[in-house]
Amino acid sequence: MYKKSKQPLMRKSHLPLILLGAAMAGYGLLTALVGSWLSTRAMRGLISAGAYRNQLAAFEQTAGLIAGIFFFVFFVWCAIRASGLVRVAFAIGAVASAAPLLVGRAERLLFAVIGLPTMGAGSVLAGAVVTLVFALPMTILFILLACGRRVPRGGRWLSLASIFVVLGTAFFPIYVTVLAFLLKPGDPAVGRMIQVSSQLIKLRYLLPGLSLLGLAFISMRFDRFPSEVAETAIEKGEVK
């Protein structure tokens, strides 16, 4: 059977992939830290709920705008530096750049501009849309990388794991919200799930960003020591 030879994800330099991963992880970390800081202040009663919302919205809109632009530029750069299926993967991933832009703006867009009904769960719906805009392209990106035969072996495994990371961090909080507000309000088990969910949501951008950094590391290692990696593959009978 014909086997395609492995090759690094990026040609010439992995800088765009590193920058993309760093930007995504950095954005995730920053939003988690600022969100935690503000929520702690609000829960202690140091700032009012109104002040909390205003400050958070101002931060999310500014940070989201900057992050969205950076994500898009780095995704496109990655697509340019890649080839074949990997290029397609990053081109699709570029759609996820819209997600940070939508944070803090989705409600207005969906319910004031488009005129969708809120059904009494506007923020949940808007949050779900933002999640989908990020999670779906990222999931497709990782699926394509996991399926890419030219992608280094370690990169494929990491991509496979990242699919579950993206789906878990994206949809578990939505699932918990639906349980908590619609299906099982008052259930102590759901209460504990809210606790987990509120921590998990902070990892929504951080973990995929770290996955991209991991992919960059594996790809660079492959680029630097292709024979060593190839030998390992031969030993394991992957390459005939």
Binding site: G35, S36, S39, A42, M43, A49, Y52, L56, G120, A121, G122, S123, V124, G127, P173, T177, A180, F181, P185, G186, P188, V190, G191, I194, Q195, S197, S198, I201
Partner: peptide
């Protein structure tokens, strides 16, 4: 239990952005 549930709902507001 009941107050814990209220705690979780407030937590969902402040930490998950559930405006409802």
């Amino acid at each position: 239990l009941e107050t814990q549930w209220r705690y979780r709902i407030i937590q969902a507001y402040f930490e998950q952005g559930i405006l409802e």
